[in-house]
Amino acid sequence: MFEARLTEGSLLKKIIEAIKDLVQEANVDCSEEGLTMQAMDASHVSLCSLNMRHGGFDHYRCDRSISLGLNLANLGKILKCAGNDDVVTLKAEDEPDTLTLMFESPNQERISDFELKLMDIETEHLGIPNEEYKCTISMPSGEFQRIVRDLAVIGETCIITCTKEGVKFSVSGDLGNGNVTVRQSSAADGDEKDQVKIQMEEPVTLNFALRYLGFFTKATPLGSTVKLHMSPDVPIVVEYPIDGIGSISYFLAPKIDE
């Protein structure tokens, strides 16, 4: 028996919205520890990794580890039937063919349940080494979204350069070129969540497809902060912490000069 209850059901809506344009089908693994998901986009250039700790749920029970093969577009359709203030409960048997989703309005006046058919999905699981990155940038997620959206109008590839002073996002295209530099905030600058913080061992410059960075920014509603982890010649990690429950991280392979 698997049962997971989230008082803030809208969180689940936001999570699926953040994934479904990048990944069509995915296995969500449920264990005593919580929910995890790892899935690549169709062209195997990027990967999305979701982690929701059991402690972040209001009720969580998982007697036996199970894998839920989900069509994310279809799950999104069902979650659209939930109100934004609804409590959402997920339920599945030990060897499930379906996932049951129950939505309860805050005053308990409306209770609905839906069953989503599960699929057998063969996926390739990648082992991601737990490495220390040379640069970690923490910045407001809305700011990152804006930069990606703005630069995508000009070109396809973004050069991200991280130095101690700041992070430079550069693009060039047929109409011209552009740069946006965000500088490290000084300690006195305003709110923690509005700050740009850079931890750097050595400067890093990498090239990335703006199209994929754009997919990642669908996670912006999940939190005020995004973290970018970069090291030379390896995929970037774009991590959105989800307050109190876990995180969603996207890995994107760099574009390489040949």
Partner: peptide
């Protein structure tokens, strides 16, 4: 020319 690399070039299948 910039070429888009794949994740398999960096991470192993497990």
């Amino acid at each position: 020319v910039m070429t888009q690399s794949k994740l398999s070039a960096f991470f192993r299948s497990s």
